[in-house]
Amino acid sequence: MRHDPQPILRGLALAALLLAAVAGAPSAQAGTRCDTQTVSAEKVAAAAATALRVAAALDERDAPVALVARVGTDLSAQGLVYSHVGFVVRDHANGRWTAVHLLNECGSDRSHLYAQGLVNFFSDDLVNQDARIVWLQPAQAQRLAARLRALPQRSLHQPHYSLIARPGSREYQNSTAWVLELLAASVPDGAAIDQRRAAYDWARQDGFRPDRIHIPYSKRVLGGLFSANAAFTDHPVGTRLSGDYPVVTVRSIFDYLQRRGYASGQREWRNGRLMATPGPA
C-alpha cells in the first residue's frame, strides 16, 4: 500500500481487509515505494490468515503490547531471518492489535511512524508469511504500551533514515533502532528517557550488542541489498574499509530481550506452521 506521508496513520480495519480477501478484490496494495502495486487476492488472503493467527495468539495472553516480526526482505545471505519488527498494541485508538512501526518513505532518506491493522502489516510485499511474537514482562509492557498510545509525544523518532544506521547515531535511524530505543525507554530505570542517544546508551550499558553486517565494497559501488537508503558515511572510515557494519537487527533485539530476561514468552510460525521452539531470528 502506498503510505500517506503523515505520521501515525489510521489503522486499516481487519474485517474490511478480510472481506477484500474473500471477495478477491484486486485493488489491495502494499509496499513502501511510491509506485502503486496491486497485490493478488491470494496474497491478501495469506496476509489475512497470518493476521488471524497472530491476533488469536495475542488474545490468549493478558498483555497490552508485544513485538511482532515479519520477513520483508530476504536476509538469508547475512544469516538473518526477520528483516522488520514493530509493536502491536491491544487498546490503541486505531483498533485492537494495531501495529505501530517505523517505515522508510518511498525509498527516500526519510521515515515516518505508522499505525496499521495486522492484515496491512503482513500485506506489505513480503518474502513470505513467517512471523514471530515476543511478549515482554508485565511491568515493562505496561510502560511501553502507555508510551505507544501517547505517540507522537516522546516518540524518540529521527526522520532522517538510513537502512544501515549506526547504532547510537544522532543523525540517522532505521526501524529496528527505533524499536530498540523505545524498549530501552520502558525497561526498569529507563522510563524517564526522552533522548535517543540516552536510550541507546542505556541499552548498550544494559548488555545490548548489535549485529555486524558485512557489505563488500563492490556491493556498495554496484548496488545490491543494502545499496538504497543507506548512509555509509554514518560509520567511521575503519568500518567502511573493513565492510563490517554494526547494525541493530531483529535478531539482536530478540537476543537482548531473551538474555536480559525481559522477554516473557515467544511464538513463531514458519511456512504457516506453529514452531514447537522458536528458531533463529
Rank of each mutant, 00 (worst) to 15 (best):
L118G: 09
L118P: 04
R96P: 00
V88K: 04
G95N: 09
L118E: 05
W135H: 13
D125V: 04
A93F: 01
C106V: 08
A115I: 10
W135G: 10
N104V: 00
L102W: 01
L113T: 02
Y114P: 03
N120G: 14
A99I: 07
Y82V: 00
G95T: 02
L113K: 01
D125E: 06
L102G: 14
D124G: 08
R90T: 04
V85G: 07
V119A: 13
D130L: 11
D109R: 13
D130V: 13
T98A: 06
N94Y: 00
D125Y: 00
R96E: 01
F121V: 09
V85R: 09
P138C: 06
V88D: 07
A93E: 15
T98W: 11
V89G: 01
W135E: 03
P138S: 07
S123H: 12
S123I: 11
W135I: 10
V134I: 12
Q137W: 09
F122C: 05
Q137Y: 00
G95Q: 10
L103S: 14
V134R: 12
V100C: 03
N104G: 13
C106N: 15
H101E: 14
A139C: 01
R96C: 08
R96K: 12
H101C: 13
H101A: 14
G86R: 02
D91A: 00
V88E: 00
F87G: 06
F122S: 01
G86L: 11
